[in-house]
Every structure is written in C-alpha cells, then in structure tokens.
Design a protein around this nucleic acid. Structure first.
Lengths: 251, 251
DNA sequence: CTCAGTTTGTTCTCACGTTCACAAACTCCT
DNA sequence: AGGAGTTTGTGAACGTGAGAACAAACTGAG
C-alpha cells in the first residue's frame, strides 16, 4: 500500500492545521456523493503519479468527468480540505478521500464462482492495488477444485464458514450462474459476510444490514439499446406509429 | 427494503386482456425507470418460463426487488397495460417492455480488448439471449490475432471502420486496459458507434449524442467498503471522535 | 498596506425520484 | 343486479440531487 507521504511543503501554513475540534467525519454523506468519491480518488492518484502537487476544483472535476460545482459540494461533505484562492493539495485530499471510503485499510474478499467471469475477476489487478485482498477463490464444481490461478488455488465451497471467520471477510463477490446465486448468498451471509457484489443476473434477497450491489452486463446493454432506439426514432422523425402487433402471445 | 422472504403465493388464474388501441410510446421515460425496465423484463421472463400467465404488481415487484408502488408508476410511463382487479398478463407485458427497451430487434455489438475480461464477455451467453449479437472481437495485440474463441476469431483493431459500417454496429464494448480506452473510444465513435459500454477504469470523453455507461469493479467494491466501514463504526458506538489526524504528514 | 484576481464553501432554487393514499375499474359471489 | 373484495393508475407530499451564483478567504503585485 502506498503510504500517504505528503510533500506538504508547497503550501505553507495551509488551512488544514485548523484546530481538530469537532471535525469528526459527518454522519451523512449522500449516496450519490459516495458513489463519486472513488472516481475522485482515481483522478487524484493519476495527478499524484504525474507529480502534480496542487489542483483546482475545475481541474479535478474535468479529470473526474463531473462539473466543478458538484465536485466542490461533494468534497464539502468530507470537510474543508481545500484552500480558497489556491485549490486542493493532491496528496492530502487523496489521503482524506481514501480514509473516508475506507481503503486505507485492507479488505479481505472472497470470490465465489470461478467460471469465465470469476477467472477475470481473480486476475484483475485493480483489486489488490486499491485495498482489496482476495483471500479465497471458491467453486462448487469438483472438476475445478485445486486448479491453480495465479498464486491461489480454487477451494471447495464448503470451506466458506471457516474462511470467513478466520480472515474476517466482510465482502463477498458472487460470480456464479444465476440459479446458484441465492444459495451462495445465503451461505455467505450466514457465515458473516455483510457486503455482497453480485455479478449473477438475478435479484438477491438479504436480511437488513447486508448491502448488495449488482453488476449486470446485459442490463447495461439494454439501457444503451433503449437510448439507441430513441436516437433512431428521433432521426426518422415522421416514421412514427410502430404500433403493437396484437397476437404476439406464443401459447 | 422489502421483506427478505420470497412468498411463493402465486395466483394461477386466467385472464388475457389486451385492448390493442394505438398506444404510442411516450416521449419521456425517466432514466431511473429505464434502468429498472430490464429488471422487470427478466422477472417476467422467469415467470413466463414457469408458465405463469398473470401476475399482480405486488408479485412482480417482489420478483424484481422493488416496491409495488414504484413498479406501477414505472409501468404507467409505458401505458396502461394492466387490468384493475386482475393484474398484468405476463406475456403481453413482457412483449411491451421488450419493445420499449428495443430488444425485440437485434443489436450488433463489437467487443474491443480480449484480455481476461474480454474473454468472459465473449463467452457470456446472456448477450445473445437478450437481443445482442457479437459481430466481432477486436484486439491490438498481434499475439492474440486469429485466436479462436467459440465460433469467432479475434481480429485486428484496424478492421473497425469497415466492420462498424458493414454490420451497422451502434454499440461498442471496451474491455481494454485504461491507457488504451480513450483511443479505442475515439476510433469507435469515429467509425459511427454511438453507444459505449466501458469496462476500463477511466473516464471517457465523448461528443454529444454518444452515450457511455461504465462498469467499474473496483468502484463498486469501494462503495461497499465505505458502508462496511460505517457499519463497524456504528457498532463501536461510543468510539466516536475518530478525529482527523492533524499531523498526518509523515515529515 | 491595499487592491485586484482567484478559488473554495455554501446557500438557494429547481428538477427528479420515491412513497403514500385513494378513486376508478375490474371480478366474483349471492 | 348489486355489493364486497381486489388491484391498477395517478395525483400529491416528501425527500434527494444538480447547478447557478455569490460571499468568504486566500495570493501576489505595487
């Protein structure tokens, strides 16, 4: 993990030294903002890699693909980490966002379902580099058991309870076929996992207190298709009235 | 959220009703609704596979993981496809949603970047079964050129313009490393692609009229991490005042 | 020191999205 | 036929998010 060693010399006497009274992390960052913080973090890392010490909200917003008013408002939920007339210290802001998200610590993760997608996830370097450590790859298929994948071998799904307990796993990734997803989810939750990233194309039922985020490729494509269709209809203009074919029922 | 229980109470009753009056697709479906339509469609397909002919908004909402008021409002944007006192005809509603999204027609798609993730996408059966047809797999790496993948072989990235033109490709999927993504995007857009699904962890700049949706695994995990962190803090309760390490500067 | 220029943090307003609650419309039973 | 029971479609209330605009806070030059 990269230590947040800040070359905090360029901005002398920054407003950061303000008395640390009651600057406790606020209790209500809007979801929309939370979803953008990782984007800002990545933009800051890029700037950092280019040895840029300071940036304005305008520059950072451009790099993150949002407008600057939104960026400033988002950052204001974390606290006042900028300096008026100057901008933001890249290293400092980067650390603050990382801390707020929670990626200054290490999050052990299990991946369940090592098919095509599971393989890709297991090999994805972006996990490790961003505070996530894969502690196990699980699959129920005996044929895949023991298969080596990088520096890790595939284990049976039965180990899950002991694994979660031993490594304090809080986050599970489901990359199984849809039919297996709910069962896997129940096992994970039962074992103590409280956050799930679901790649299986199905709705997961979980008890209160468990967070689920889903990534669904075909849904994303369908949303694009909808807009694409609108574009063509708009172009064709006069060609309206697609009209419903009445007897489409298959039975 | 909704009740974690899956009530299997089905009302197997008959009742097909369709008034084929001219129901022109309205010109303004909210984005939030568009994003949920594919979920409803999948739920309907599941019901259809189980030979269920009719369902209430409550049942469909449960299957889709939303509450019934939201579902009814969403569906009302498409038209009045239900029958009061009865519910929705599964086949009929399924067709209406599919038509509204645009998946009754066939969408040719190109995938660029056939690494780990690209392989998984190319093999994903969910594309074909939902109205999307992969017409080409492109990669710039000469070592991968010609490699067979299912019934399709990997082609060079230079073919892109002719491919897009020949197959009328409107949707492109980018699964390249981050550094290559913007260039690939520019080439795709230049060739005529107007919708892009981006898996590369980077912000894409596109001209007006081009839609981009991004799928970013590490962002999803970071969002989960944020909430996970909050949960632990909440548990510790009294342990407030994490307080900003004022002197986080290591120097 | 003062003043002009720059950039943040915040307030205000508007648009969008969610949920409630209920009339309208339908079925079924007597 | 009429009334009780069901379920949709929607108007209204409420909450959240986006963007414009501006005062406050800083820098640097003269």
């Amino acid at each position: 993990m990269t230590s947040p060693r800040s070359t905090r010399s360029s901005t002398p006497d920054q407003g950061v030294s303000r008395s640390a009274s009651a600057r406790v992390p606020e209790r209500g960052i809007p979801e929309a903002t939370v979803a953008r913080l990782p984007v800002y973090l990545r933009a800051l890392i890029t700037l950092s890699d280019r040895a840029i010490a300071t940036c304005s909200s305008e520059e950072l917003a451009t790099a993150a693909g949002v407008n600057s008013a939104k960026l400033r408002k988002d950052l204001s939920y974390l606290g006042s980490y900028g300096t008026r007339g100057v901008g933001y210290d890249v290293e400092y802001l980067r650390y603050q966002i990382a801390r707020e998200i929670g990626v200054t610590q290490d999050w052990p993760v299990v991946i369940v379902g090592i098919g095509n997608l599971g393989h890709a996830l297991a090999n994805y370097s972006g996990f490790r580099s961003r505070g996530f450590r894969i502690v196990a790859l699980l699959d129920s298929d005996p044929a895949r058991l023991g298969e080596k994948l990088g520096d890790m071998s595939i284990r049976g799904f039965d180990d899950i309870e002991s694994l979660v307990d031993e490594h304090h796993v809080a986050i599970g990734v489901i990359a199984t076929p849809a039919v297996a997803a709910q069962d896997v989810c129940d096992r994970l939750v039962g074992a103590g996992v409280t956050s799930i990233l679901n790649f299986a194309p199905t709705v997961l039922n979980v008890p209160d207190g468990v967070d689920v985020r889903k990534v669904d490729l075909s849904i994303e494509l369908q949303i694009l298709a909808y807009h694409e269709q609108r574009k063509s209809l708009a172009l064709d203009g006069a060609m309206d009235l697609v009209d419903v074919p009445v007897g489409m029922e298959t039975a």
